[in-house]
Amino acid sequence: MKSIADINEIRAKMQAQICLRDNSDMEKEIHIIVGMGTCGLNAGARTVFNALVDEVETKNIKGVLVTRTGCMGNCADEPVVEVHVPGKETVKYTKVNAEKAVEIINNLVKA
């Protein structure tokens, strides 16, 4: 006999497999942009970009697109991450690292 915790564990484990079959994420809404000019790259923008993509996948979030862009003009504050949510003001995060990237995605989930 399973407990509620067991059921939730099965659910988490199986969701990772089943999500492959979900085509409801066809329309993307949230756009995350990472500055990847020379300044950004040297400050670790690539790690941030990868962390964002990984977190979107592990959290199984639909409707998020992560893309790169060039220098955003805040070289001293790199890596810079911009988050565009439709109908909301654009948020710019500065000096982002992998941990902060996870936090950014967590905040999106909550909202």
Partner: peptide, 16 residues
């Protein structure tokens, strides 16, 4: 797949 789908479904992670 679209880029976002490639990302969210782990296809890019597998590629990496």
């Amino acid at each position: 797949l679209s880029v976002a789908e490639l990302q969210s479904r782990g296809v890019l992670r597998l590629m990496r």
